[in-house]
Amino acid sequence: MTKKTHVTTTINGEETEFLCEPRQSLLEVLREVLDLTGSKEGCNNGNCGACTVLLDGLPVDSCLVLAVETEGAEITTIEGIAQQGHLHPLQQCFLEGAALQCGICTPGFIVGAKALLDRNPDPTEEEIRFNLAGNLCRCTGYDKIVRSIQEAADRLQSAT
């Protein structure tokens, strides 16, 4: 067995330490070591976006990041999107807008959409489609996902 490395990160606002092998991806460590199973594995090679997390504020496919690379990083996963018992408007709008069917892609879409809205609070349909083109959904045909992100953007904007 390969020797494990000690890594210190901040995950969902909490300082977190873990041991990992050099070959373990961030996704694997989140799911198998830290029990944060909200990030999903759809392809394990960067093609589906189900494993999207924020790494220092930027959306990444956590299956393509080696866990040892995250020393000192700030990571946000789907488990860290709702705050103090309140859903994020994206989560609320996905629920109201029926933007999920099976729901396996949903964590990746919500995390990815949050990154987009943090950067661009009022995206056009084109911008939403372009920025989230790395997230696959096989169930919804995307229509209700676009609408729910737009609705969340509106709510976030009118709240500020």
């Binding site: 799911r31 199973t37 909200g38 859903l87 629920l95 964590p107």
Partner: peptide
């Protein structure tokens, strides 16, 4: 089942 699915709590087969 929506709440569990938008917060990452829902238990899928691999979870």
């Amino acid at each position: 089942d929506g709440m569990d699915k938008v917060t990452g709590k829902a238990k899928y087969g691999a979870d």
